[in-house]
Design a protein around this nucleic acid. Structure first.
Lengths: 221, 221
DNA sequence: ACCATAAGTAACTAACTGGTTACATACTTT
DNA sequence: AAAGTATGTAACCAGTTAGTTACTTATGGT
């Protein structure tokens, strides 16, 4: 419904159409930040409108309702990681390199998109009620691409044949996500900046070491 | 403040004192369930009061405010895992057995206390703002005990000496937590009951395999 | 029996929230 | 320039929420 109106205004390159697109964009960005920070319940429409420098009337004009806006925010952000998986998850000859690159890409994507981490965390807590409405393939897509990398690794005998791919995918997600998800709780205990270049790399190397020595075939034991 | 009133009523074994303790307990249980399900913002005081079969007036009498009740709920639930770490985290001679037992205890505690998983997840999303107020040692305690197990493993040469203990603790938490945290999102994709005895054991064994082959010294590679 | 107090009830309020409406202005097309 | 539409504003509404108040009932000590 909003998409229809959007397209109609889109064809105007200048003037009102452009301004409406700008407004939509500003709302989406503000809403992303505020929904990420406070969740669907905690976020206030008035706050989003004010932050976007737009009137509440216009916000409802563009997005219909709070929940609809929230869903649009999810779509807007999920598209980012969808793009990531299409670009960074390639199948080369070196299995170890494939996994490393995919995990690194995923890890640094999360590091640089805290809003995304938080949005998905809120979603997890309400059972993916809204995420399901938007791009239901999303979760699959990234996982499928990563799954292919693992499968290929098994075929090439770099990864143990009895590896449970689904479990590995959940584990990789877990190892990356929780670091950012619980950052604010861990930070005061560690007394270090978990987002510094060094600490990020330490964490990533730890994750890779854990994964590889777990899933790669060993000669011994 | 409430503790004072509580103690005063406690000394009566029967009658008013007992009933007030019962009421407090019922409120705490209802609040745990509802806060876990909907979070601090989503939960409604009226809903909690009704669920506890008590008047809202009394709820405020016992707990002062919504936030105070929330904090009490956190304390009430954190004490459970504190007890766990004291009972299940023992140092025996077999390092592998120590780690296995601790991880298993932690994993099954989470499996059987979904409210706890959700409460801590909500807390992670608001930066542990309220958790910090209650038992600030909590997070440390479990981690310290587990850290000791790892340290002991290193001393006994079962675990690589260059192991970053903090990273391992976060990773263990991650591998266990995310399975339950994202259960509702993973479930429709896997089309299996993630909480069935079999699936729980599959996940636990996967976690243990991943951890051990990561942190235990190998002869090769 | 009586009284002080704890436990409980229901109705209320002041503030706030998501959502709406009546109205004004700016821009584009013809 | 007229007309139509996109964009914007502010006041408003109905429902909800956390928290309160005035009042009643039950209990235990004396």
């Amino acid at each position: 419904m909003n998409n229809g109106a959007k397209e109609k205004t889109m064809k105007k390159v200048d003037g009102r159409g452009q301004r409406s697109e700008e407004s939509r964009g500003r709302i989406l960005n503000s809403a992303t930040r505020i929904f990420a920070k406070k969740g669907l319940d905690g976020a206030r429409i008035d706050e989003i409108a004010e932050d976007a420098g737009i009137n509440k009337r216009m916000l409802y004009h563009y997005f219909g309702s709070k929940e609809d806006l929230y869903v649009e925010v999810l779509r807007f952000n999920y598209e980012k990681i969808y793009t990531l998986s299409k670009n960074a998850f390639n199948l080369a000859d070196d299995s170890k390199e494939n996994v490393t690159r995919a995990v690194r890409a995923y890890f640094y994507f999360l590091a640089k998109n805290e809003d995304f981490v938080r949005l998905t965390s809120w979603e997890a807590l309400n059972g993916g009620r809204f995420a399901k409405k938007v791009i239901p393939q999303f979760f699959d897509l990234v996982e499928l691409e990563f799954g292919d990398i693992i499968k290929d690794g098994i075929k090439r005998n770099f990864i143990r044949p009895d590896t449970d791919i689904r479990q590995v995918i959940v584990s990789v997600q877990a190892l990356c996500l929780v670091y950012f998800n619980r950052r604010e709780i861990v930070q005061p205990l560690w007394q270090e900046d978990l987002l510094s270049e060094e600490m990020l790399e330490v964490r990533l190397q730890h994750i890779l070491a854990l994964i590889f020595d777990g899933i790669f075939s060993h000669e011994e034991e």
